[in-house]
Each structure stands twice: as C-alpha cells, then as structure tokens.
Design a protein around this nucleic acid. Structure first.
Length: 459
DNA sequence: TAATAGTCAATAAT
DNA sequence: ATTATTGACTATTA
C-alpha cells in the first residue's frame, strides 16, 4: 500500500475530534517525513487498536499538533467516570507505569516541547479517545485481571502456596531483617525536608551549581554527590514543567462555564507549591522574587530544626524569612549556600545563567492555544476560532534585533488575556514567577545581544 | 562532558 | 486501592 494512502487515514485517526482547520498554517515543515526510525527495535508491542502496521512512531512523526492538555483532561474524565485506574490504563494503553501516567496526566508538557518519544503517549491517548470501544476494552481487561487474580488466590489457598514466599524456609524472620541480603535492594534515598530546603535555597542562588559547589553541598548535607546532582536535574525539570502548566491554566482561567459536561473535571485551583516559593528564577540578577506566598496560612511551615541537617544550617546561617508577613523581598540574601567562599562556577558558555527558564515565547502562545482548544468539552461542536495569527512567534529564526525580539516576547507574555477579571490576589505568585522568568530571559537576551552572536534561542 | 527528556519503581499520601 | 511524588537510570543531544 502506498504509504501516502495509509498516512492519510492514520493522520485522520489521530486527529483531534475538533478538526481545527489550522492546516493553513502548517508550521511543521521540517517533519520531513523521513522515517528515520526504520532501524531496529520492536517498536510497538502495544495494542494500538486493530490497525494494521505502521508503528506509533510513524504515527507520531506525522501526527498533527495535539492539544496535550486537552487530551489529558479528557482522559482523566473518562477514566474517573468509568472507574478505571491509571495503572490499568497505563500498562494497557500506554505501556507506562502508574506513576508515569499520573505525572503525565497531571503535568502534560506542551506538544512543541515534547520529543518524538515524549509525544508517543499523547498520540496513544488520542487514539484511545477516538476509539469508540475504548472504555469497554479497558473494562474487559479489568475483568480479566480480576479473574486472574482470583484464580491465583484460589490456587494458593487451596493448594499449598506454590509460589510467592520465595525465600523462606531458611531465613526465618530474622531480627536483622533483609539487611545482609547481599545488598540487593538499595534503600532508596529519601531526603529530609530540611535537606530539600537547603537544596532549594542553593538552587535559588545557583540553578546550575559547579561541581565544586555540588561537592560542598553533598558534604554538608551528608549526601552522595550523585544524589545532589540528581536532585538538581530533577528539580530543574520539575520547575520547568510547573511553569508550563501554570501558564496554561492561567491562560484558560477566563471562561469555563460553557457547556459543562458530566462529571466535574478536575478542580485544581491553586496548587500552591508548598513552602518552596518561587524558585526557578531570579538567579539572574535582581532580587525580584522571593515570595512567601500563601497569605495567611501555612506560614509556619517547618522552620526550626536542629536535627540532622545542622550541617547545612551550620555552615550557612539560614536566612529564611522568619517574618512571613513581610515577604517584601529577599534579595539573594547574603547567605551563600554552603561555605561562603563558594562563588560562582563561572564556566558555562552558552545559555546558562538563569537556567530554569522555559521559554515564554513558545509557552505563552501555547497556553492560549491549549486553552482555547481544551476549553471545548470533549467531543463536539464549537471548537476554537482563533487562528494562527499570532502564533507565529514560535520559532527560532535568530538574526533579529534582540531588542525587538525581547519586545515581542514581552508582549506575548503580557498579552495574555487578562480579561475575565475574576482574579484577585490569587495570581500573585504566578505573576511573580512570570516576572522573574522574564527577567532572566531578558538577562540572557541582553547578554547575547551584547556579544552579537546569532545564538539560537529555542523559542 | 554535562544537560535534558522520559521513565521506572519505591513509598507517601489520600 | 488508587493516585501523587520523587530519587535514580537510560538514552539523547549539544
């Protein structure tokens, strides 16, 4: 069969219910089609509905832009409406574990920020949503699982338990517990809240600590170096994603009513990141951000502790903010994280500085887009109307007056419909994050501009 | 070489 | 029971 043929139908399969006639804009030019993936790998062992061949990878490659936020929203609805769990859905439909599914559904990244691999689950979800029997199939799976489970239990009860307690026999209960066990299982590190706080503080001053700094942190907190490194990696990406969703939600808060549908959606309101304040930004320069957020509430979070973490506390007198009331601003208050001398890691050539910067240029438009699309309830009519008039700013381009670019970035950022007055002070934290973010971006742009380098911003 | 992206899997929290 | 969180790993990418 001609690839073009199948390609077409498949593309339709993936299409979102609401055919956004955005084709006019195209925009994904380079997706050259080239099926680079034609190498090894078993590819898709998953269900992938009846379809014939064509791996999802190929589907992903030619998939039109999908509204990830809208998709996850609908998936969540369907799952909860039908009492289907994430584990079942994940293993059966996506080939992912429960934890991954939870994360994906709660914090989907915008389509354009996803790699080919990252898009896969979303394509699968879209495919699943389009499948008229999706729920039935899953329910069947559920039944089957239960049956199997019952069976197992039965046999183990009636029969002598043939399996399970693998070890046993010897080993008794042992008071030493599974300690000496060849150390086969790592304990799984669990950072104490104090340690996390110390790391967060360090992050705020330097999102990309030098190896030296990392080493010091590890020593002071009594952690393995790799743990600290991992923590920074994880934290950076976590922060990044948080900004994504905040943008999206901020952009969609406007209206909502419309045709509410069955089952309430997921009310998420303000997740308010606990006491971690707006990390993620500000490393650039100005103080700008240090919010205590949460006016009148959990102000008194864990504060004093003299326990184990004294290492951190000791070296760095905590600056914290004893006075939540006066959040005003806490400039990078002197307190260098660990060991004063620390200073800067300096190196880092290209893009560096304030790392935790997702890209506003892209994010902003994305937010609008997602919002628009997802706003429409699952299947049906009125889909978006907005076209791609403004969504042009999504790509690199490069050589353009930095100033101009910055201006446009600012515009798109601020341009977010602020209408829908309804919000009061609630958006403060968000605003701050955005502002801080903007600052860091500006900082980078200026830096770049001054050195007249074409640099490629991935906006 | 180091940063990022995507996940896993243990374990916390509901 | 499920769902959410998060340290660690693996594969990519620049």
């Amino acid at each position: 069969m001609s690839s073009s043929e199948s390609v077409k139908s498949l593309t339709e399969l993936v299409q979102q219910p609401c055919p956004t006639i955005d084709t006019s804009k195209d925009g994904k030019p380079p997706e050259p089609s080239d099926p680079p993936a034609s190498d090894s790998q078993p590819a898709t062992p998953l269900p992938l509905s009846g379809h014939s061949a064509l791996s999802i990878q190929e589907l992903v490659a030619m998939s039109p832009e999908l509204d990830t936020y809208g998709i996850t929203k609908r998936v969540k609805e369907v799952l909860t409406d039908n009492n289907l769990g994430q584990r079942l859905f994940g293993e059966t439909i996506l080939g992912l574990t429960q934890g991954s599914v939870s994360d994906l559904l709660a914090r989907p990244k915008p389509w354009h920020k996803l790699s080919l691999k990252g898009r896969e689950p979303f394509v699968r979800m879209q495919l699943w949503l389009n499948d008229p029997n999706n729920v039935e199939k899953l329910m069947d799976m559920k039944r089957m699982e239960k049956k199997a489970y019952m069976k197992r239990r039965h046999s183990s009860v009636s029969d002598s338990q043939p399996c399970e307690p693998p070890s046993v026999g010897i080993d008794y209960s042992q008071g030493a517990s599974p300690q000496p066990q060849h150390q086969l299982k790592k304990p799984r590190v669990v950072l104490a809240p104090e340690e996390k706080e110390a790391l967060k503080r360090a992050y705020q001053q330097k999102p990309y600590p030098s190896p030296k700094t990392i080493e010091e942190l590890a020593t002071q907190l009594n952690l393995k170096t790799s743990t600290v490194i991992n923590w920074f990696h994880n934290y950076r990406s976590r922060i990044r994603r948080e900004l994504f969703i905040e943008e999206i939600q901020a952009g969609s808060q406007g209206q909502a009513g419309a045709s509410d549908s069955p089952s309430a959606r997921s009310g998420r309101a303000a997740p308010n990141s606990e006491g971690d304040s707006c990390d993620g930004v500000e490393a650039a320069e100005g103080p700008g951000a240090a919010d205590a957020e949460e006016s009148g509430g959990p102000a008194a979070a864990a504060k004093s502790q003299g326990g184990p973490a004294e290492a951190a506390a000791a070296t760095e007198e905590r600056e914290e903010a004893p006075r939540p009331a006066e959040k005003a601003e806490a400039p990078p208050s002197g307190t260098p994280a660990p060991d004063a001398t620390d200073d800067e890691g300096r190196p880092r050539g290209p893009a560096d500085g304030p790392g935790p910067v997702p890209n506003p240029a892209a994010a902003a438009p994305a937010a609008g887009e997602d919002a628009a699309t997802s706003a429409a309830p699952p299947g049906e009519g009125p889909c978006r109307a907005r076209d791609g008039a403004d969504r042009s700013s999504a790509l690199p381009s490069t050589s353009a007056p930095a100033a101009a670019r910055r201006a446009s970035s600012l515009q798109s950022l601020f341009g977010l419909p602020e209408a829908a007055g309804a919000r009061d002070s609630r958006d403060n934290p968000l605003r701050k994050k955005k502002a801080a973010n903007l600052n860091s971006i500006i900082h980078r742009l200026e830096k770049a501009a001054s050195r007249e380098e074409p640099i490629e911003w991935e906006f």
